[in-house]
Write a protein that binds this DNA or RNA. Structure first.
Lengths: 339, 339
DNA sequence: ATGAAAGCGCTAACAA
DNA sequence: TTGTTAGCGCTTTCAT
């Protein structure tokens, strides 16, 4: 702290002096209270409270090697799905007395590696990354520094990093199967930028597994309501009208809903529409959006807990698969005989 | 860093030894390069690069008092408006080599004070808070510790803290005047939880200034699409149908749009609808949303720059008012004679 | 311009 | 159980 204030911060020695004990004892009541007599402990604690003593995080870090914060690298804050994830992450890390430093990567692997390095340089004890595809630099960095690092939003037990996430491929398939079951055969798929985004790539891969049974067309659009709305135009202007539109994220689907509405296309009368994510708002759109629920909140909690344990007790977590499940609402209906 | 890895991190001494200079010299090329001969400087720099030396942030902090990070306290991440603000804040702080630690307060002043204390304890050099109303604890904390702190999302030059934000009262008024100009006299106002949220309170205050000229009714709803959608029911079930609905945030307005749509009410034919915020998605709703643009992105940039300068050069920033302006789109139209 | 050395506030051996 | 003391890696006088 740039001690602008006159009197400098109270330190261990001040407390020790005031309590009539040694610095070691004060340090003990802070770090291993059981190693101190109850009597001295309470006395010291009183002095600590009275003097409003707060141990210097820096001094502590330099000795114990603990900084008590971890870093999270996410593509963007500007998407409710990550914001929700981070909210849960932060809350749960807090329960473990860990702070969270957020860095956004804009889905740029080089930027991601740089920011990760920055986080490590300032002492991050662990890292949360999105997905399993990262630059060689970042992988080397994590390897070399042996930083506890968890990959999220993706489940892949063959990944070198522990993954905590869902099966993106399966989630997409869940959606497409639902549309298939409803009789839709011609499906337009709208997805965010696939480059540098393995979650999206994996969802696309899932859909391709189904390509014999359905006729798929593809549109890439920037994530966001705008992107979804603009995609509507593309979907309807090229080729024959699809039976259904599958957006690989809910914001895209909401944007699509507006886009279609603007063009006079009714959902689900004219075509079915689905998303993936299940944002809170997806239940109140008109019609309410069928989607695949992705448990990002739980993902945040589990990632936080796993990372905290790894950092604190050096216990590397196992991969954790979270369940993604279909949510059928009003935006998807059985295909009418003469569409 | 809990040095799990075998060989420990390179330190200043290692560099000094390898370069054949003293630790002081190495420290100098790091912190005041001009105080060193070009020759030695380059030589030392080479060794630094070669050994991949990164100064310990903790050790640096303990000496210089600099931790190079600041904290931001926001009500929630789960609202695009804050996410956008933080994105800009983070980006711009990065340009000043400052990291950002985010803490969410859930609009709870006590929680806010606790989290602020936590941030300060771990060495935050500055703070960004939302609004100007805070617990006595927090005010005392900021005062006592003399932490550079900027209040955002609110402009009030009489505030003890420098404020960087817009005139919430005026922004709301801008919206209501627009509705008034279109001939609307009966306006339902939908706002988020007002308790503990001075931005909302100030917007409400603004509207009340206009209460002689318009007949205002009030509905409070949780922020989010859901909240907005549910508010639709309330707005239309109590009392006579309003000429227009003014939502004090865009997400609420979007939710309202869905809610109305679900009830068979057309915007803007049956009534006009406005928001405040101007989210990117607000331009693509159907109809596109009239709103008041709040420059949160610029706010993030300016807050970051101001805080960075305060922290680095001890220059307390002035209050900065950002311009909020009306955006007229399709959701508001002139009131028809026989509504 | 450079180096030697004294800390910064704390933790962790080690001793008592 | 408690105290003494040696660092941790760096910055910063103060000499040279």
């Amino acid at each position: 702290m740039t001690d602008v204030s006159g009197k400098k911060r109270v330190n261990l020695r001040d407390v020790a002096k005031a309590a009539g004990v040694s610095v070691a004892t004060v340090s003990r009541v802070l770090n291993s209270p059981n190693a101190v007599t109850e009597k001295t402990r309470t006395r010291v604690q009183e002095v600590i409270d009275q003097l409003n003593f707060v141990p210097s995080a820096a001094a502590r870090a330099i000795n114990s090697g603990r900084t008590r914060f971890v870093g999270a690298l996410v593509p963007t804050l500007d998407n409710a799905i990550f914001a929700r994830f981070l909210a849960a992450l932060e809350r749960t890390l807090g329960e473990h007395q860990l702070s969270l430093v957020v860095a956004t990567t804009n889905s740029d692997q080089e930027l991601e590696a740089n920011k990760a390095k920055g986080l490590l340089d300032i002492g991050a004890e662990g890292l949360i990354v999105s997905g399993i595809t990262h630059s060689a630099d970042l992988r080397a960095l994590i390897d070399r520094a042996r930083v506890p690092t968890i990959a999220t939003s993706y489940f892949d037990k063959s990944c070198a990093l522990p993954t905590i996430g869902y099966d993106n491929c399966g989630a997409a398939l869940l959606a497409l199967e639902h549309l298939y079951d409803l009789g839709h055969r011609r499906v337009a798929v709208v997805h965010g930028p696939a480059q540098n985004n393995d979650r999206t790539q994996d969802r696309i891969r899932g859909l391709k597994l189904f390509e014999q049974k359905t006729e798929l067309s593809w549109v890439e659009a920037p994530i966001g309501l705008q992107g979804g709305a603009e995609a509507a135009r593309q979907v309807l202007s090229h080729g024959p009208k699809p039976d259904a539109i599958l957006c690989l994220s809910d914001v895209l689907a909401m944007g699509m809903l507006f886009g279609l509405q603007g063009m006079g296309v009714s959902v689900p009368q004219d075509l079915s529409l689905m998303g993936i994510d299940d944002l809170p708002g997806s239940a109140v759109t008109v019609p309410p959006l069928s989607t695949v629920h992705l448990p990002v909140h739980r993902m945040g909690e589990q990632a936080a807990t796993a990372l905290a344990n790894w950092v604190e007790h050096d216990t590397r977590p196992d991969h954790q698969q979270l369940d993604a499940h279909l949510i059928v609402r009003g935006s998807t209906v059985r295909r009418k005989r003469n569409g």
